[in-house]
């Protein structure tokens, strides 16, 4: 039981870390630090970097949360069934 709980927690933390990397990269690197480089590309009337900072990142946040919720929900069920 103890081992399974540990494995569950490890899987959770590693998923969180992966998703936090995405969460950090898109807005902070794409929308702020390297925004000028991205701005050289246009997305319709939007400079890309500006779009990432004012639109794109927000959509991505929503996707990350639902992805995490789905993955964890599966993991929870697996944990409840006793598998790994």
């Amino acid at each position: 039981m103890k081992d399974r709980a540990n494995a569950y927690w490890k899987a959770n933390v590693s998923l969180i870390v992966k998703l936090l990397v995405v969460w950090f990269t898109v807005p902070f690197l794409g929308g702020i630090v390297f925004v000028d480089i991205l701005n050289q590309i246009n997305l319709g009337g939007y400079p890309l970097g500006f779009w990432v900072a004012q639109q794109g990142s927000i959509y991505m946040f929503v996707v990350i949360i639902f992805y995490y919720a789905k993955k964890m929900s599966d993991l929870d069920d697996e944990f409840a069934r006793g598998g790994n």
Partner: peptide, 10 residues
């Protein structure tokens, strides 16, 4: 825009 939405991921 970023700050008040990104917190929900955390």
């Amino acid at each position: 825009l970023l700050g008040w939405t990104g917190g929900y991921v955390l």
